[in-house]
């Protein structure tokens, strides 16, 4: 049930266990509907926007309700947003922190902007990894929060006339939590990468090889521990850090490098190859959750197959696990007929 959510003033939808193909002209609210479904997974929009942006222009508040069935239990979520206030409840009890929602509903959103994490700045790839990992492990989210807070404090300190002893008190924490964070990422990638390669090979019909490397923002020697490498490098660049007022090494500056047949995707891949890489990565994100929590996340494709050829599309369908509930939004329903989903056609509102 959506009331005053984006362009919907008051509607209710009912979906099958298999999902739905949401069609309709541009501007009918297809992405908005996906956004509403995934709202209960994260307690916020998957678009980078303010909560108040979700409210219909004609109103000053919104109210949405969603019922999910998980392991034969009904989870009833409700949320209301008005100016500066957001309330989310699950089965009648209030949820105080949006991150407490993460464990209930898992969704993976295949965004048209996903190619950006391949061609864009490193921050997009880090965000992808951080988001996937936060959904995968609550401890990662906890570490990430702590690290970001320490980083903020340290950056402010670097801009002031500080005593070296004070800087050291923050360095120690940055190194400790930073290396724990990187360690979590590496462990995740250990099982992520082979799955990614397998998916990509399947999509490209064994014609191309995709690989992925973790790029450190500091010199990494295999003989030393992560923390001592980071510590040593931070000492080395202390002068530079003081000059710029920024922390210049750590997980917040590390990057991922995707390569197809040993060429960096960022600068050499075609649009279709980038799209296939992004889809492979999102599929592994879902697979990792399935393997760890033995639950199949909801998949949401926001018209991401439009620029792929028929063979690749067919190969992607082959990769999908049959238990996923799948939502697809597209103005061209015909492209997605092989998914065999019930079509919900949205109309332009008068």
């Amino acid at each position: 049930m959506l009331r005053n959510f984006r362009n919907f003033s008051d509607v209710e939808f009912d979906f099958y266990k298999s999902g739905a193909l949401i069609s309709g002209e541009n501007g009918t609210g297809k992405t908005n509907l996906l956004e509403a479904i995934s709202f209960f997974a994260f307690g916020k929009s998957f678009r980078n926007c303010h909560d108040t942006d979700l409210i219909n222009f004609s109103s000053d508040h919104l109210h949405i309700r969603g019922e999910f069935v998980k392991n034969e239990h009904i989870l009833q979520f409700e949320s209301g947003i008005e100016k500066n206030r957001k309330k989310i409840s699950l089965n009648g009890s209030r949820i105080n922190r949006t991150s407490n929602l993460y464990k209930f509903i898992k969704t993976v959103y295949f965004s048209p902007e996903d190619v950006e994490f391949l061609s864009g700045a490193p921050v997009f790839r880090r965000n992808f990894l951080d988001q996937a990992l936060s959904q995968y492990s609550f401890s990662y989210l906890e570490l990430l929060r702590r690290y970001s807070h320490i980083l903020k404090q340290r950056n402010i300190l670097l801009k002031t006339e500080y005593e070296n002893a004070i800087k050291k008190s923050w360095d120690k924490q940055l190194i400790n939590y930073g290396s724990k964070l990187i360690d979590c990422r590496l462990k995740y990638l250990d099982s992520f990468i082979p799955r990614l390669q397998k998916n990509y090979q399947c999509i490209s019909a064994n014609r191309e090889n995709l690989s992925l490397k973790y790029r450190y923002s500091f010199p990494r020697r295999e003989s030393e521990s992560l923390s001592s490498d980071l510590e040593e490098y931070l000492e080395e660049i202390a002068g530079q850090e003081k000059e710029t007022g920024h922390t210049l090494a750590g997980p917040h500056l590390d990057d991922l490098q995707f390569e197809i047949d040993n060429h960096p995707v960022r600068s050499f891949a075609s649009q279709g190859q980038k799209r296939s890489t992004a889809i492979s990565a999102r599929l592994v994100q879902a697979e990792m959750i399935r393997v760890k929590d033995s639950e199949t996340p909801i998949l949401m494709f926001d018209d991401v197959l439009a620029d792929l050829d028929k063979i690749r599309t067919r190969n992607i369908i082959k990769l999908l696990h049959s238990d996923h509930q799948i939502f697809i939004a597209s103005p061209n329903a015909a492209i997605y007929k092989d998914f065999k989903l019930k079509e919900i056609k949205l109309e332009l509102l008068p």
Binding site: K168, S169, K172
Partner: peptide
């Protein structure tokens, strides 16, 4: 984080 920093210092 602030407590840890103070402890370290």
């Amino acid at each position: 984080a602030e407590g840890e920093s103070t402890i370290n210092f």
